[in-house]
Design a protein around this nucleic acid. Structure first.
Lengths: 325, 325
DNA sequence: CTGAAAGCGCTTACAG
DNA sequence: CTGAAAGCGCTTACAG
């Protein structure tokens, strides 16, 4: 090296201001000449910090997560943190393996996007964790996301404002907080509009195929419906596709509304009316909170909600008087 | 701990067969009781290996990559390796930062999906790297992917076999090996069918919007075209959407074919005829090769290609005699 | 089959 | 402002 101790090299690199300009320059010169790069493993070992945060999600291919991820990345990069992505694929075993990264020191904290509580004992104690988008039931894990109840309420109110009365709700998968929150908002708006007797929860799910199946259910059992509010965009698209295949015109004969505003919502035909979530901001906010958490700042006890909005496109319109039957 | 030295604990955990059954059991019991987990940092430092491989891609949200990623993950998990995803976002600076993980020991090797050569000096020497899907120009980095020239040739032959003669090609972005390979395959098939004078390279790109713009180009300048072979699925969908907006019926008046077989290809209306790439297998194969590379086995000097196939759906049909003008 | 010991490459109180 | 020294938690030749 260039005439100084390793201690000084370390100082020059980590806190340039505490060494003299002369040594600093010498060190930087030597570094760029030799192409030196600190050994992260040694650094991690000594500091007892990995400088990495773990992002746990159920399906990396789901476009819903991409903007959240880029928000997380932006903030993490600024803070000089690496992000490690763990893909559970909905499997408990994978989830457990991924959590291992928090015990063995590969990551200092985690962002949980899969809505599952870490199994007892698997979450290392005192490790900062924040849940995003999907709340974790019965836990005090800090949360960042959209107010799903409120957003579903707004969505339903929008359909009511168009003149719809028989509005069905194609609900998400069971045992999911998103499903319950969105149904609750729908039911509240219906009740408020004096439509208690029209409240109609159709079992559905979050996939395109689920939406198709739910459409057949609607056609078979609720032929008076003039609108369907679906629990997410994917299922709304499946719903529409099936209705079209059965010869119905959306929105002329039946309106369909989604939730999420995924990238594809504006490419699908008809373009989907949906609820927009501020996904990038959600990711950023969650990462910022995790940063605070890592530096032992107190966490908010109630969930942090970011603003949502109704995006009106072409899959909804005023109802025909008679319904579509 | 349970009556043995740390050396023995290490041996019991890493190579259970070289310790006596008695100590092994004692160690495992103590481990599960205390919830002990090895410190990865210390392990990395001592072994001079991170047990992590770096996957570099331009856009994590692109659904094209998801199946490749899951293939990579499957093999990596079996081999007990962690994967670290680096998202370049197409930015050189990010790319450089991501490559840093190979210098500082956070990763032992890399899988390159962004088709860019690591800038001189930024790739640590002797680090195993394999390129996937998109070849890196002028480099001897081992490659795994689809034979794009051959696949484009097959796609074009399919259109020819339907009876099309005026087949345009909406080409990918400039300076990309995929673009050149696919154009070359298209041109070869056209020439072979005696249609040299019909070879028509329309500047396009890989996005939906690029496809829409290219459609206008085709309508304005090549109104005799009865089919367009697009460089990927996204642009093919944009092409179709614009043609529909202009009042044309696909495939009746004009056939459009894509490349990749992304998940959305079968949901889009009309369902897209395209070239299927064995993305999961590509990911697996690349990861397997990287494993070999890491254990110093020799790499193949020529690219490893996995099988592609033509998926016929509803965006292509026999041409009308007259073209669509 | 097991233990004592060295050392991986950093960082950081402790002196000076 | 800088250096010498200790120690983070492992793994692995080396003895026995």
């Amino acid at each position: 090296m260039a005439g100084v101790s390793t201690a000084t090299v370390s100082r020059a690199l980590q806190s340039p201001d505490i060494v003299s300009k002369k040594t600093r320059d010498a060190v930087f010169a030597a570094v760029s000449e030799t192409g030196y790069s600190v050994n992260t493993a040694a650094q991690m070992l000594r500091r007892n910090r990995s400088g990495t945060i773990l992002v746990i999600l159920p399906d990396i291919a789901n476009p819903f997560f991409s903007k959240i991820l880029s928000g997380i990345e932006e903030v993490a990069t600024q803070a000089n943190l690496t992000i490690l992505i763990g893909n559970t694929n909905g499997e408990d075993e994978r989830f457990a393996n991924i959590l291992e990264n928090l015990r063995n020191g590969r990551a200092d904290g985690a962002l949980l996007l899969n809505g599952c509580a870490p199994p007892d004992g698997l979450l290392a104690e005192g490790v900062p964790v924040i849940s995003i988008s999907e709340r974790v039931n019965n836990s005090d894990i800090p949360h960042v996301g959209t107010n799903n109840e409120e957003a579903a309420y707004d969505a339903t109110r929008y359909l009511v404002s168009l003149g719809h009365r028989a509005i069905a709700h194609a609900a998400g998968p069971d045992g999911n907080t998103l499903t319950e929150d969105r149904f609750a908002g729908y039911a509240r708006a219906m009740a408020e509009a004096g439509l208690d007797d029209k409240i109609n929860r159709v079992p559905c799910g979050f996939s395109f195929g689920d939406g198709q199946r739910a459409a057949r259910h609607v056609l078979a059992k609720h032929a008076d419906a003039t609108a369907v509010f679906c629990a997410n965009d994917e299922s709304a698209m499946g719903m529409i596709r099936c209705l079209q295949d059965e010869g119905y015109v959306v929105p002329d004969q039946i309106s369909v509304m989604g939730f999420d505003d995924v990238p594809y919502a504006s490419i699908f035909q008809p373009e989907l009316t949906t609820v927009h979530q501020a996904r990038n901001l959600i990711g950023k906010q969650a990462m910022r909170m995790l940063l605070d958490f890592l530096s032992d700042q107190p966490m908010p006890v109630s969930p942090t909600f970011l603003e949502h909005s109704i995006v009106v496109r072409n899959s909804t319109s005023e109802p025909l008087d008679s319904g579509f039957s």
